[in-house]
Design a protein around this nucleic acid. Structure first.
Length: 751
DNA sequence: CGCCGTCGCTTTTTT
DNA sequence: AGCGACGGCG
């Protein structure tokens, strides 16, 4: 993140030193060349509300960035008068870079960032309105939970029935909907902890304010409250932002929508807001996103124009055809048909491969990847996209065996590692002695004899004096309340802080951080640790200290970490990527492997149970996202049985497979030994709708069921058993050892 | 105060 | 099966 991110952007004294601006206006519009008419419309319709429905691979990012540049180059606004919002830091970074390229100079002083980063910036300016100071801290999930647990204590809630994470979730959902404690109606309060949820929420917010802290949801909530209640502040932003650009609008939740609408609807009635999104790629409803926001756009912003980007420049015709056929099964859509923007690309059909079990699936995927590499495809251009994290393990093991380099995208992130969180907590106390949560985290790491009981005493004393833990502790040491062995160790910690403050003033934050972690004994704790992970942890802490050097101050660094939570990855060497379908949104690859297309896995049973038809449609959109990641090859796999937790479970092909139009799909079986069963599995696709068997229709099809109740049968995995019931596709069998299972008849051998 | 055993859960995830 | 959280015991 460039240092410019921290610059204040509201004042009109914002430096802008690009000599080419605005001289370029009108004189050179070469940046508009080679755009198709819809893209040009999306860029040149600058005034009034505009919704750009941008299908996968239709040049969305290009449109967004070119539009931004266009507004600047035609002199419609200065760089800091455009508000540009994205969901991820990655998207913000990419946009910033591309705008810089278009303008020919690094884009500085922009209001371009994620919802949360922009809100953090606004909140720092107006913190006092909601009872915080400008230097408030942003809590991570760990801190939130610990704080909530503390707050919950007086209620004596049965945490078995009402676990704290559940309540935290409820609070987050309220915040996502723009509900402060005061706005939560009694009717909404009944579902948690016997109706105490709202009261606890209120106490939690009070405690946050005492700590001069806010959680992630608060960034949006507080700023929206400020804009709602302070007309003068709102007017200030109305004057400032002449244009608003929003990426991934289909993923906005209610509070983000409210925030945007407040900023967009100024008194003059003119809203130059441009939202870009794709209702077919809305896959985050489970965390509060409201597709309705995009479906409702025309009503929210009267006179809105709509531009559809439907020409896809990414994928082959077969990939587009398969994806279009699939998504056509969804109900509520704004209606958009991807068509190929290229004349060349017929390409290969999307392949659907039936395999015996999840092991065979991993083998098939690895073998194919190896073969494709042999044909000249780089591993960097291949990805395995899974529905859920547990699926990655099988592929990892197989890839290791095959010696193919891979990377798991989206595992535990750097700033979530416990040693990094510890080190961060040390730094937070340094920057912000009022940060009790950070203090609590580190006061007994390494062990200093400060258990819960001792902490209680600290808390009591701090509350009595009305100061924070880090402030009250030296007093307790001086007046002898804290003494003995643990007292000495805590004294050493406080001395470490004292000397670090001196060093911070004299030598800067990098040296100070190193000094603090050294003097406090934290680094020694890991040096003395004999566990195999310890050296890696020390290495991570070293990296953390190095990362500090990229920031002007300790505070800037802490803010960055709180908002970004990611570290720049190393160079992209040629590795195959494994990631979830959610993680793959916005990315593209030549060759995409889509394993696990089985009922229960994908669509996920849980989503179906909880979300019903809406859930199913979201899963289908996820499938659509998966297929459209592929430029050249999309390869789907499904297995006949899969290991889930401890035991093997039979599995049915995903209903999505039948929804793929035959003319764009080629269906195969794969794998060695169980050839007969696999051929039978393939026949599933040729002799009738699989859906019939799934809905457990009795055997009324024209062909008789292949098995009768009482038949003795064998299954390669589960052994010998007796048929209980059977229809044309499915057989229910009691096995001697494996219990009762429903299986595809094609995998069963008659004895 | 800290360790060990048992219980329960187990999708997706950004910020 | 495997991990994390809590509770009881030493």
């Amino acid at each position: 993140m460039p240092a410019s991110f921290y610059k204040e952007g509201v004042s009109t004294s914002e430096p802008f030193s690009d000599p080419s601006f605005p001289a370029a206006a009108g004189s050179d519009d070469s940046y508009l060349a080679r755009l198709n008419p819809e893209q040009r419309a999306a860029i040149e319709t600058t005034d009034g509300p505009l919704l750009v429905l941008a299908g996968a691979g239709t040049g969305k990012t290009r449109v967004l960035t070119t539009r931004f540049a266009h507004i600047l180059l035609t002199g419609r606004a200065r760089p800091w008068q455009i508000l540009a919002v994205t969901f991820t830091n990655k998207a913000a970074r990419e946009m910033r870079e591309r705008i810089g390229t278009l303008l020919g100079s690094p884009a500085e002083g922009l209001w371009l960032g994620t919802f949360h980063a922009l809100c953090a910036r606004m909140l720092r300016r107006h913190a006092e309105v909601v009872g915080l100071t400008q230097s408030f801290t942003i809590l991570d999930t760990d801190d939130q939970l610990r704080l909530l647990k503390q707050v919950m204590e007086p209620w004596r809630i049965d945490t078995k029935r009402w676990p704290a994470p559940g309540l935290l979730g409820a609070i987050q959902r309220w915040k996502d909907r723009g509900l402060t404690p005061a706005r939560v109606t009694p009717a909404e309060d009944t579902d948690f902890a016997n109706g105490h949820a709202r009261a606890i929420y209120e106490a939690y917010q009070t405690r946050l304010r005492q700590l001069n802290a806010c959680d992630f949801g608060d960034l949006m909530l507080h700023v929206t409250e400020i804009l709602r209640s302070q007309p003068d502040i709102l007017a200030q932003y109305h004057r400032l932002f002449r244009y608003i650009l929003v990426d991934e609008y289909q993923d906005t939740n209610t509070i983000q929508y409210l925030w945007l609408r407040l900023l967009a609807k100024n008194s003059s009635g003119q809203s130059n807001i441009c939202c870009v999104g794709d209702d077919d790629q809305s896959i985050y409803s489970w965390r509060g996103a409201e597709v309705e926001n995009i479906l409702r756009f025309e009503k929210d912003f009267p006179g809105a124009q709509i531009v559809r980007l439907e020409r896809n420049y990414r994928s082959t015709r077969h990939i587009l055809g398969a994806a279009a056929g699939l998504i056509a099964h969804n109900g509520e859509r704004l209606g958009k048909t991807l068509r190929s923007g290229r004349d060349d690309a017929e390409g290969d059909k999307v392949s659907v491969t039936a395999v015996w079990d999840s092991d065979a699936e991993a083998r098939a995927v690895c073998d194919t990847a190896e073969r494709l590499r042999g044909q000249g495809h780089s591993l960097a251009e291949m990805a395995i996209l899974v529905r859920a994290g547990f699926q990655t393990r099988a592929f990892e093991e197989q890839l290791i065996q095959s010696g193919l380099p891979y990377r798991i995208v989206g595992g535990t992130r750097f700033y979530e590692r416990s040693e990094i969180r510890d080190a961060m907590a040390y730094l937070r106390v340094l920057a912000q002695p009022a940060d009790d949560l950070a203090f609590e985290r580190i006061v007994n790491v390494p062990k200093r004899g400060m258990g819960p009981a001792a902490l209680q005493k600290l808390h009591a004393a701090a509350r009595a004096d009305g100061v924070s833990l880090a402030i009250v502790t030296p007093r307790l040491l001086d007046n002898g309340t804290l003494k003995g062995r643990s007292g000495e160790q805590v004294r050493a910690l406080m001395n470490a802080y004292a000397s670090t403050h001196d060093i911070l003033a004299r030598e800067g934050h990098v040296v100070a951080a190193e000094h603090l972690l050294e003097e406090s004994g934290y680094l020694d704790m890991w040096r003395q640790d004999r566990s195999p992970e310890a050296p890696g942890r020390l290495e991570n802490i070293k990296e953390l200290i190095q990362a500090l050097a990229d920031f002007p101050t300790l505070e800037a660094f802490l803010e960055h970490v709180a908002l970004v939570m990611e570290k720049d990855e190393n160079a992209q060497d040629a590795r195959l990527s494994i990631m979830t379908l959610h993680g793959a949104k916005g990315l593209e690859f030549d060759c995409v492997f889509l394993p696990g297309w089985e009922e229960g896995v994908f669509p996920s049973q849980r989503t179906l149970d909880e979300g019903g038809l809406k859930g199913l449609e979201e899963e289908r959109r996820l499938a659509y996202v998966g297929i459209t990641r592929a430029r050249k090859l999309a390869m789907i796999f499904h297995a006949g049985s899969r290991r889930i937790y401890a035991n093997w479970q039979p599995s049915m092909p995903s209903r999505f497979l039948e929804e793929l139009p035959d003319e764009h799909v080629s269906r195969h079986t794969s794998g060695g030994r169980q050839q007969r069963g696999l051929q039978a599995a393939q026949s599933l696709f040729s002799d009738g709708p699989v859906v019939a068997s799934r809905t457990r229709r009795p055997s009324n099809a024209d062909t008789p069921a292949p098995f009768q109740p009482g038949d003795h049968v064998r299954h390669a995995r589960f052994g010998v058993g007796i048929v209980l019931s059977a229809d044309r596709h499915q057989v229910e069998i009691v096995f001697e050892t494996a219990g009762t299972k429903r299986l595809l008849s094609s995998f069963i051998e008659k004895l």
